[in-house]
Design a protein around this nucleic acid. Structure first.
Lengths: 234, 234
DNA sequence: TGCATATTATTTGTCGACAAAAATTATGCA
DNA sequence: TGCATAATTTTTGTCGACAAATAATATGCA
């Protein structure tokens, strides 16, 4: 607390403040360090990062644009809630994006994409071997995000990444420090998915992605004990 | 230029400035009043709306979040370009969202949704009858957006509305004041789509939406004279 | 005491100003 | 003249301060 010297200490590049605050708040929200409903105090953040409220507010506007925080006009702003009532809409969107992005990856991927995908798969396998649930969530998301990138459709990757973020938040609710046996099966399924992508087999990619996605959904739904799966038999 | 009186003239509610600027800029971008590549000058906007740069910048941050403008750090900001090279990714996403939202509308719509949908269809029919191409684009988008809302999946409606916005921008390039005969067919197809939604026939909804969407895509693609339709035979 | 109103305090939205970064123009030297 | 460097202008990012809006607290009256 002893602010010893009075010289101006910028110590920070010009446009980097907003990105720093945005990235950190985003991580804290997705990791549930800031659980849903947590109040966001501009002044507090400003003195925490030793900058004025202006860049803080810009970061908050961005987060609000992605739906990660809710802003009441002239009132408080807080971390957005997870909508458990409409969870099925999340699952529907997630399954469909799993399918579409994997299918497109099989169609449009390049050689270098496969290397990236395999690297993420190695990370995921390592996380499973280490029984590190938090790392599993992160590396699994990175794996599927890389597949989506290989599909080269910015509209789908955009939605998919948002869904994976939201899924990260949901999964954190349950796998705080939890060991599980199921993931070994996921590792094998990932290998199969890589194989059909490499073989450019769109139909098989769609099929495997569907099974894979619905398994994940079912695993989460077991936690919620909710029925009513929506059958988008496309 | 003669700043006659010095009394403070707020004349405007506290949080309304950003929304006003955001809405107006958004419309001007989508209507191509501000064509792709147009420079956005904060100071100019500030004096145009008689407010400081702060609310202007907040509106710009939001628009950048939606990809409608591109911001170079410490450099200029301009209206984002339309990516003609990857136009097929737009079509893929558009067709899929047409299908999914129409299917979900058949499944989850309520009685009051149909009234809204039919009202938009009436507007569309009126625009076609009046040969008003610009109104056709707007009312057609509103019609399908209403269907998406009836499907009650915020993730899909979010992406779909963004796609419809982008489509509005693309179509404006060609239908500046253009008369066309095709739309009459669209009116009939819309009626058919309403019927199968009302009948809660998901499969038929999917089928009609696919045909409808691919027709629109083909019509646009004729203008581009590009081949290579991606077959997402789901 | 209980409730309505008034006062104070906190927080948000906006402003004008300044400084850093880049673009533009001017200057010097070969 | 041609080009590199320096000075100037323009534009953006950040800051501290103020005012509106709301929340919290205090006061008055039955």
């Amino acid at each position: 607390m002893t602010d010893s010297d009075t010289n101006s200490t910028p110590e920070r590049k010009r446009g980097s403040g907003v990105k720093m605050v945005y990235d950190l708040l985003r991580d804290e929200i997705l990791d549930l360090v800031l659980p849903p409903g947590s109040p966001i105090d501009e002044v507090q953040l400003a003195e925490r990062f030793k900058m004025s409220r202006t860049p803080i507010r810009e970061a908050l506007v961005r987060l609000a644009g992605e739906g990660l925080i809710d802003t009441l006009p002239n009132r408080s702003t807080m971390v957005s809630n997870i909508d458990f009532l409409n969870m099925h809409t999340f699952f529907d969107a997630l399954v469909l994006m799993y399918r579409v992005t994997t299918r497109l990856a099989a169609q449009y991927h390049r050689a270098e994409d496969l290397q990236v995908i395999r690297a993420h798969q190695a990370d995921f396998a390592a996380a499973v071997a280490a029984q590190d649930a938090l790392a599993m969530i992160a590396t699994n998301a990175a794996f599927h995000s890389a597949i989506a990138e290989a599909g080269r459709n910015a509209y789908f990757t955009g939605l998919f990444n948002r869904l994976l973020d939201e899924g990260r938040r949901i999964l954190r609710l349950y796998y705080q420090s939890y060991e599980d046996r199921l993931p070994q099966r996921f590792v094998e399924e990932h290998e199969d998915i890589i194989a059909v992508i490499a073989a450019r087999d769109s139909e098989a990619a769609d099929r495997l992605a569907t099974i894979h996605a619905e398994q994940i959904v079912q695993q989460i739904q077991k936690l919620f004990a909710r029925g009513g799966k929506l059958d988008i038999a496309l």
